[in-house]
Design a protein around this nucleic acid. Structure first.
Lengths: 227, 227
DNA sequence: CCGACGACTTGCACAGTGTTCAAGTGGGAG
DNA sequence: CTCCCACTTGAACACTGTGCAAGTCGTCGG
């Protein structure tokens, strides 16, 4: 039988795990090496570079997204399902946001997702350039929302990595940020009023609110065009 | 007269310049040092850490955004102006996107912007939680759109940095990406159809399309609420 | 005018990074 | 048994952020 050896697949899986637990700055070839019980440089036989590996890892996670069946539901339901699936995936892998913002990401996984997304908006009745515009509007909105959440995950991971009392550091940072905001009377009044309204809405609620209004807007855009 | 010495301001300005021209990975303390004609470690007297400096630089650029006067225009016009101002600012400083996705950014500049943004949506008639939801919907959409454009700037900068023929590398990457996409019949057909429609819309057009539909959606959301 | 203090700068050092490369290892084929 | 080749290894290089002891140089008290 063949000797136990690294596989590209195993490397990518381990890279994703490492990224999930340590954030994008936590991915180092040597750390990856120890997790794989091999020398750091062994990875270079299977993969061109760290950037290459990151692109591979980033593409792998797109496969996790479930694609809704188009025949059974309205286009709004399908678009919502796609958006929520993407959003949830990014929350599981917050490092994807910094990765997207510095690398050109592509691959089978992403193409599979994009293909289905295209189908959804074509089925909705958008034509020509509009189908791309509509798609992108929703897609980028999800990305923007994910950015906020991913950001928090990222700087928490960063603080964890620098050592010291993480909780205290977070308190300091947040205190500093709010101290500055409170110098603006309007912001102060607003934040006081918000406290009376109970806890602020979860990211999922934010996503739902935005999706609803965007899809409404798209629907009326659709109305002004002949089918 | 006092001896010529570094100032925090000068450091931040130079850091922004360096970030603009080299991207976020191009910001190194030693490079910054040479641009300042000083030792890299001299900066550490004025600034706690590189992360600290990045937060300062990131906050500085928010000051560039012009805040529209609220008395003269409809809320949609004001919201559009804010969104376009933010978008243009990010295009001038694409490193802000990766910075936002890994650091907790705050400061006077951002607070100033947020304060005015709040004013816009309050004046529009949103109340309670809705004002934040509406604000965030537009804001995150702009961020998402900016992410796409900033990403391209970032990986171009990255390629430039690794040396070699940048143009050729770009061609290779794009070719690889489209090769994969073309395996999906629907994507292939769509991209062929797009070519007949002339050049794809500029990022600004994308932004305008999305803004229009989102603001429409928000307007009708506003209609269902009592003022 | 002088000495001392303190604001600021410097160079060195350390641990860590991605990556290259010559040298090694071991299983399967002839 | 031998050779080859897929795969692994460790050393090395240039680079990173940062701590620290030492140095420089204006200003101020005597």
């Amino acid at each position: 039988m063949p000797r136990e050896t690294l596989t590209k697949d195993q490397i990518i899986r381990t890279a994703v795990e490492l990224l999930d637990s340590e954030g994008i700055e936590g991915l180092s070839m040597r750390q990856l090496g120890t997790r794989l019980n091999s020398a750091a440089t062994a990875v270079y036989w299977h993969v061109k570079s760290k950037d290459d590996l990151l692109v591979l890892a980033a593409d792998a996670v797109w496969e996790e997204i479930e694609l809704p069946d188009l025949k059974e539901v309205t286009w709004q339901a399908a678009a919502t399902a796609m958006a929520k699936g993407l959003f949830a995936m990014i929350l599981r892998h917050p490092w994807l946001v910094p990765a997207m913002s510095t690398h050109l990401l592509y691959g089978l996984g992403k193409a599979r997702h994009d293909d289905h997304l295209l189908a959804v908006y074509q089925a909705a009745g958008f034509t020509g350039r509009d189908v791309e515009q509509a798609m992108k509007t929703v897609f980028t909105f999800v990305l923007g929302t994910a950015l906020g959440v991913a950001s928090e995950a990222a700087w928490r991971a960063r603080l964890r990595h620098t050592g010291g009392d993480e909780q205290a550091q977070i308190r300091d940072l947040v205190a500093q940020a709010t101290e500055i905001a409170m110098r603006f009377p309007r912001l102060r009044a607003h934040s006081a009023a918000q406290e009376d309204d109970g806890p602020s809405p979860s990211p999922d609620k934010e996503l739902e609110f935005g999706l609803r209004t965007i899809l409404n807007g798209l629907q009326s855009e659709l109305g002004t065009r002949p089918s």
